[in-house]
Design a protein around this nucleic acid. Structure first.
Lengths: 113, 113
DNA sequence: ATAGGTACTATCAGAAAGGATAGTGTCAAT
DNA sequence: ATTGACACTATCCTTTCTGATAGTACCTAT
């Protein structure tokens, strides 16, 4: 199983398991966000922005929204002033971590060849 | 290690192991191509096109070139008429297969939730 | 003579992703 | 009074990705 889902013709990769996984982690910053959250949960918005460095507000905001709607992160808003919002990984995201480790390890071994 | 490469600020994800792996497999069709090659090597150009179905010549051609320049596939041209070109996976690509299996399995388990 | 197969390339167009910049409302500190 | 922190949103622009369509050069089969 797994990759056997590609038997026959492929119409929309989005509908295959691989396509789904990539749609969830394939954004330019998603993996970085997941990693940073895994390291020190929970994290606040501007904190995340500072840690990533070169991302813009808009892009960080849209990536977080997508991760949230894909069920990988939880957003918790504290109704106070100044506002406070915390992000943390869901259980679903935790099951992704070993897979991401695999991607990183393969990358580390093959990057400079 | 692995994901620890994200310590500190991230300038270019391309330079991280994860970014490298995604740059190599992240194209819309690359995973499909790798899977089909893994299933029945070697494969010829038009054969691949027929199996994938909805890809265009141009896109297939460019994805194959990128995979080749990333060292994942080998292109062998037979100087005859009509022309014949065969594609197959390299040893480097074979080491990627378990990682791709991981992506697919996670996707299969989480796709419809 | 026409159609079809081989492996493509070239050109143009549209969609999607990502980035730059500015602004919102409230409060605390200087 | 100004600055800065918080968590964003809105608008516009550029870059990248993907797709549609047509065409090349040669051969074989009908």
């Amino acid at each position: 199983m797994g990759m056997a889902a590609y038997k026959g013709q492929v119409k929309n990769i989005q509908d295959t398991p691989f396509g789904y996984t990539l749609s969830v982690i394939g954004g330019k910053w998603k993996m970085v966000i997941i990693y940073l959250l895994a390291e020190n949960q929970p994290v606040r918005f501007n904190d995340l922005k500072r840690q990533i460095g070169s991302i813009t507000f808009k892009v960080l905001s849209s990536q977080l929204k997508e991760l949230e709607s894909d069920g990988l992160i939880e957003r918790k808003e504290y109704p106070q002033i100044p506002p406070k919002v915390e992000y943390r990984l869901t259980a679903k995201a935790e099951t992704l971590l070993p897979v991401l480790e695999g991607l990183c390890e393969w990358g580390a071994r093959n990057q400079n060849k």
